[in-house]
Design a protein around this nucleic acid. Structure first.
Length: 582
DNA sequence: GTAGGGTTAG
């Protein structure tokens, strides 16, 4: 400000007329004051229009009258305009205005300039509009930048369209463009397309670099086939290509998810050998992977080892570890870490709070859980659906439905949104207390409020309805799950068959079993046993016998009391044994 | 590029 001020003074000293000029400039109708018979020069108009578009908000209304007799349709004008100091968006606006003047046909040079400027300004949608509405052939360089720009903005489908067109006309883009498409695909999780395009890239003879390899490895990991990622990694490393840490970290994470922890040291050694040092993400993946697989003891060991070696865990690692400990009910250890963390100067964040609150809920200390939740809210982490869900689950687990509902009702008042899990948790809590009407009502509300129900929205209800013999309702809900496009877990069919058996509908139970077998689903052992028992009680020994055979063929060993029971009925135990062996 | 809530019962 001070500098602007002093420069204004300088200007005034050097040019006493400045203020009057300035005033006339800003108060003039449009700053244009030329006789109607004036012969306009294109450069002159371009410069003027550039100024006007920059300074006058609604220039469209008066541009024609500002330059009477000037031929705006002359494509050279727009071309000239683009060479003035203006920005891409203003150019686009003028361009659209020109297109609205009948008969304007831009030349290809200005189309290219405009397109490039828009891409440069990262305005992929505007560039896309130009491409779709104007007949011109962008340069291949421009198209490549366009593809990269689309990828960065997440418009991956558009990027692929353009790429396909390029490939269709037998033009192969540069490696940079290929890489940006691959990583764009990775970002939106379209792994299959990623590999498909990589195949085409190979066909065109493009040679991959570290970035390509990174995309492939991450692709294999998120597809659940880290072995292939590992294979590629070993190949390229032998050829001297070393991808960034993230490739190793994702491999570690994927192998931890598989339970193949013994691979982890391999990766760590590879990294160190290639001068990459394992970073915070690396160790996070290890600890998180171990926790996910309930190897919490291992996780804690790694965590402590790191500390002993002088590595300072960050807040994420503390949160992950505390969460893991709470989940394995090592609540004392979790609390110890909590205080250690605070002592090291970390303030718990919403993740850490949630982990410990859930810990208090699991050990049944709801008083302390509530206190911590309040503290968390006071510290500004209050607007948080997850922590409310955890509290609601805690209340439900310990039979305090009233308090659970209170929290549920308070949420919207505090501006905290309910989500499907909030409902699911309550539905489950109500089911546990056999409050099926209320629970069903909540399921209705979940849908009514536009939330997407999930399988768990239904499962606890279906289960309880089966148990109490309201099988028609259970079946209706089960069908509803299907029509809503959710694939209920296989064992929900087991639940229904069990319910049918227990309430005297063996025949129908058999039909459901048939349905399961037709879908190649494996019924549970106890489902078959229950059916056998009910069939026998109804004197349907043929069916019971068939199921007995089926059971053995499925590799289930029928429990002895079923064997004895059937054998006794038939008095032909040896025959069964032979049948099973055949 | 990181961590969180629900999902048979043993």
């Amino acid at each position: 400000m001070a500098r602007a001020h002093s420069s204004l003074k300088t200007i005034l000293r050097q040019n006493p007329n400045f203020l009057t000029q300035f005033r006339s400039l800003s108060t003039a109708k449009d700053g244009i004051d030329k006789p109607t018979n004036h012969q306009w020069k294109i450069t002159e108009v371009a410069r003027e229009v550039s100024r006007i578009t920059r300074t006058k908000p609604r220039w469209e209304q008066s541009l024609l009258s500002d330059f009477p007799n000037f031929d705006f349709l002359n494509p050279d004008f727009f071309n000239e305009y683009l060479h003035t100091d203006t920005n891409a968006f203003l150019s686009l606006r003028l361009f659209q205005w020109l297109l609205n003047q009948n008969g304007f046909v831009p030349n290809s040079s200005s189309c290219n300039l405009l397109f490039d400027a828009l891409v440069e300004a990262n305005a992929s949608n505007a560039a896309k509009w130009v491409l779709a509405n104007v007949n011109f052939e962008p340069h291949s360089d421009s198209l490549e930048s366009f593809v990269q720009c689309l990828c960065e903005n997440g418009s991956i489908d558009d990027a692929i369209d353009v790429l396909r067109k390029m490939l269709g006309s037998n033009f192969c883009p540069s490696l940079v463009t290929w890489n940006s498409v691959l990583s764009g695909l990775l970002k939106v999780g379209r792994i299959d397309v990623l590999f498909e395009l990589y195949g085409e890239m190979m066909e065109f003879g493009v040679v991959a670099d570290e970035e390509t390899v990174e995309c492939l490895i991450r692709g294999f990991c998120s597809r659940g086939t880290p072995d292939k990622g590992y294979e590629i990694l070993r190949q390229v490393i032998d050829n001297g290509l070393v991808p960034r840490n993230i490739a190793f970290n994702k491999l570690i994470s994927a192998y931890c998810g598989n339970g193949y922890f013994f691979k982890v040291p391999d990766f760590l050694h590879m990294m160190i050998a290639k001068n990459l040092s394992p970073d915070e993400y690396t160790y996070q993946e290890v600890i998180h992977g171990l926790c996910k697989n309930r190897k919490n003891r291992e996780a804690l060991r790694v965590f402590s080892n790191l500390k002993e070696r002088g590595y300072a865990p960050d807040i994420v690692m503390y949160s992950t570890m505390i969460d893991g400990l709470c989940k394995m009910k090592w609540f004392g250890e979790a609390r110890k870490l909590w205080f250690e963390m605070i002592q090291k100067g970390f303030r718990p964040n919403e993740y850490t709070y949630n982990a410990l609150i859930r810990g208090y809920c699991t050990i049944g200390d709801l008083k302390e859980a509530k206190r911590l939740h309040e503290e968390m809210c006071d510290r500004g982490y209050g607007r948080n659906t997850v922590s409310c869900n955890i509290m609601i689950a805690g209340f439900c687990q310990h039979g305090n439905i009233k308090e659970a509902f209170h929290m549920f009702n308070e949420m919207p008042k505090k501006g905290i949104a309910h989500d499907a899990i909030t409902y699911n948790t309550l539905i489950q809590g109500l089911c546990a207390r056999e409050k099926l009407t209320e629970s069903t009502k909540l399921l209705g509300k979940l849908v009514e409020f536009g939330l997407q129900p999930t399988a768990s929205s239904y499962i606890s209800l279906v289960k309880k309805l089966c148990q109490v013999g309201q099988l028609d309702k259970a079946k209706v809900l089960w069908t509803e799950m299907h029509t809503r496009g959710m694939e209920p877990p296989d064992w929900t069919r087991d639940l229904i068959i069990a319910g049918l058996c227990q309430h005297g509908y063996v025949e129908e139970g058999m039909k459901w079993l048939d349905g399961m077998l037709n879908c190649l689903l494996r019924p549970q052992k106890r489902t078959l046993e229950m059916l056998i028992q009910c069939l026998s009680q109804a004197n349907k020994f043929d069916d019971a016998f068939l199921l007995f055979i089926l059971m053995s063929k499925m590799g289930y060993v029928p429990c002895t009391h079923i064997c004895h029971y059937l054998a006794h009925k038939f008095g032909r135990q040896n025959a069964y044994q032979k049948e099973i062996q055949s």
